[in-house]
Amino acid sequence: MENRICGLFGIKYPLIQAGMIWCSGWELASAVSNAGGLGIIGSGSMYPDVLRTHIQKCKAATDKPFAVNLPMLYPQIEDHINIIIEEGVKIVFTSAGNPKTWTAHLKKHGITVVHVVSSVKFALKAEQAGVDAVVAEGFEAGGHNGREETTTFCLIPMVKEKLNVPLIAAGGIATGRQMLAAMILGADAVQVGSRFVASEESSGHFNFKNRVVEAGEGETHLTLKELAPVRLIRNKFHADVMNAYANHATVDDLKTLLGRARAKRGMFEGDLDEGELEIGQISGLIDNIKPAAEIVEEIISEFNLLQANWPSQVL
Rank of each mutant, 00 (worst) to 15 (best):
Glu297Arg: 12
Gly218Trp: 09
Asp271Cys: 08
Arg231Cys: 04
Gly97Glu: 06
Met1Ile: 11
Leu305Thr: 14
Asn210Gly: 04
Glu219Ile: 11
Ile84Phe: 02
Thr103Asn: 00
Ala292Cys: 06
Gly218Gln: 11
Ile233Ala: 06
Phe139Arg: 07
Glu161Ala: 10
Gly19Cys: 14
Leu285Arg: 13
Leu185Arg: 02
Ile16Asn: 07
Val314Tyr: 11
Arg231Phe: 07
Thr256Pro: 15
Glu219Asn: 09
Gly42Thr: 08
Val89Cys: 01
Pro14Thr: 13
Ile84Pro: 01
Phe206Ser: 15
Ala29Gln: 03
Phe9Glu: 02
Ile84Ala: 02
Val197Ser: 07
Met46Gln: 12
Phe206Asn: 13
Ser118Val: 10
Gly10Trp: 02
Ala198Ser: 09
Val113Asn: 01
Val135Ser: 01
Arg4Ser: 05
Thr94Ala: 05
Ile11Lys: 01
Ile55Gly: 01
Asn288Cys: 15
Ala198Glu: 06
Pro166Cys: 14
Met20Ile: 05
Trp22Tyr: 15
Gln313Gly: 13
Val92Tyr: 00
Trp22Ala: 14
Leu51Asp: 03
Ala126Tyr: 00
Gly39Tyr: 14
Glu161Asn: 09
Ile40Ser: 03
Gly138Asp: 07
His248Gly: 13
Met20Glu: 02
His144Asp: 09
Val296Asn: 03
His54Val: 11
His221Arg: 06
Val116His: 02
Leu8His: 01
Tyr47Gly: 14
Glu86Trp: 14
Ala263Asn: 15
Ala261Met: 15
Ala246Met: 05
Lys225Thr: 15
Leu106Pro: 06
Ile289Gly: 04
Asn69Lys: 09
Glu217Ser: 14
Glu140Thr: 08
Ala292Gln: 05
Ala29Asn: 02
Ile156Lys: 04
Gln281Ala: 05
Asn3Asp: 09
Asp49Trp: 09
Phe237Val: 01
Ile91Gln: 06
Arg52Phe: 11
Leu315Met: 13
Ser24Thr: 11
Ile5Lys: 05
Ser202Asn: 07
Met46Val: 11
Ile84Lys: 00
Gly88Val: 06
Gly143His: 04
Ser43Phe: 06
Gly39Asp: 12
Ala249Glu: 02
Thr112His: 08
Met183Leu: 11
Val192Arg: 02
Leu306Thr: 08
Phe268Gln: 13
Val120Arg: 02
Phe303Asp: 02
His221Glu: 07
Glu217Met: 15
Pro229Tyr: 06
Thr94Gly: 05
Val89Gly: 00
Gly130Leu: 00
Ile300Ala: 03
Gly7Leu: 06
Leu163Ile: 08
Ala228Asp: 13
Leu232Pro: 02
Val117Phe: 00
Gly44Cys: 03
Ile5Asn: 04
Asp271Leu: 08
Ile233Ser: 02
Pro14Ser: 11
Leu272Gly: 07
Leu15Pro: 03
His248Met: 12
His144Met: 13
